[in-house]
């Protein structure tokens, strides 16, 4: 392979990433932080509403479909998540050793602590490797490997370093590719670990996404994830994304990833690193879009303090 060929291959990257490359790097981070806050607030409203949820849902049916502008006070810490890479000696083991080799598989750290209540049985020991990005020096260390409760070892395991034998960290199979949607759900125990939040319709370049704050996770399960026999097509080049669902598997360190729907009937997700593509059919995509946009109020977020100053 020549460097010119790699340069040319970069010219074929997904158009979403091409556009993203011209975004302000801090802006989305702020949005997600704000969305998280709003999602939590929305969740709190639901808890307070309690038995009146049914009444609330019914009243939504009469709301206008046109999105409402919502002013969000953006904070100034928009670039706070961008931090310097610390020196090797400053890092804890889990940050130093990004890769685990165990039973022929390579797992990667997501820097997430496994709570003792999720600690499973010991299944062996593995070799962890990490490189010092400042000196290029390669380091290795042995660690105890345990199961994570409810999670199959195909997907992820917990690692316990010799210096911290009581503290486990999640390592995820870097080459994890489920064969079917059902396998994905079972391997990652999604029925218990998946959390969905804001839903947003992707309006295309130059237009702002419309955000729906109160779409219940049950709807995602019943309308999109019900057919577990659907086969994963990991190499599929899918069509334009029309809707995104903020999705997290906090147990394994996946916060605010997405489950997306495409105009050609695919559901894809970047949960657990590699893209997973399931053909659910255009009809299901349309039905979900219709359900979300007609029965829930959409908002266009306006970030007051960012306007102008952060625009290019």
């Amino acid at each position: 392979m020549k460097k010119e060929e790699l340069f040319q291959a970069m010219g074929s990257i997904d158009e979403t990433y091409v556009n993203e490359g011209r975004e302000n790097p801090g802006r989305k981070a702020v949005q997600w932080k704000k969305w998280t806050g709003i999602a939590l607030a929305a969740a709190a409203v639901f808890v307070i509403a309690g038995g009146s949820v049914l009444f609330f849902r019914n009243s939504i049916l009469t709301r206008p479909k046109a999105p409402i502008e919502k002013h969000i006070a953006a904070s100034r810490d928009s670039t706070s998540e961008i931090t310097e890479i610390p020196r090797w000696e400053e890092m804890p083991d889990v940050q130093r050793y990004a890769e685990l080799s165990f039973e022929g598989k390579t797992y990667r750290s997501n820097l997430i602590y496994v709570h003792p209540e999720n600690e499973g049985e010991t299944i062996g020991s593995g070799t962890l490797t990490g490189s010092d990005v400042y000196t290029d020096e390669l380091h290795t260390v042995g660690g105890t490997v345990k199961k994570i409760a409810g999670i199959r070892t195909e997907a992820a395991v917990a690692v316990y370093f010799p210096d911290e034998p009581d503290r486990g960290y999640a390592y995820v199979n870097a080459a994890y590719v489920p064969k079917t949607l059902g396998e994905f759900i079972a391997d990652v125990n999604l029925r218990n670990t998946l959390k969905t939040g804001l839903v947003y319709t992707v309006e295309g370049p130059g237009k702002q996404d419309v955000v729906y704050e109160d779409v219940p996770m049950e709807l995602v399960w019943s309308m999109l994830l019900s057919d577990e026999t659907i086969v994963n097509e990991p190499d599929k080049a899918v069509g334009r994304r029309v809707l995104g669902i903020d999705s997290s598997v906090d147990l394994l360190g996946y916060h605010h990833k997405t489950i997306s729907l495409t105009e050609d009937g695919y559901l894809w997700t970047n949960l657990l690193d590699s893209g997973k593509y399931f053909f659910i059919g255009e009809e299901k995509v349309r039905a979900f879009l219709k359900e979300v946009t007609e029965k829930h109020q959409g908002y266009v977020y306006i970030y007051d303090e960012l306007t102008g100053e952060y625009d290019e």
């Binding site: 060929e5 790699l6 074929s12 990257i13 997904d14 990433y17 993203e20 790097p25």
Partner: peptide
């Protein structure tokens, strides 16, 4: 190769992908 670069980009945090 292009597909693999896309897959690589898909799993990066957004700020790293923009970079």
């Amino acid at each position: 190769l292009a597909a693999e670069i896309n897959a690589f980009l898909s799993k990066l945090p957004k700020d790293r992908r923009i970079l």
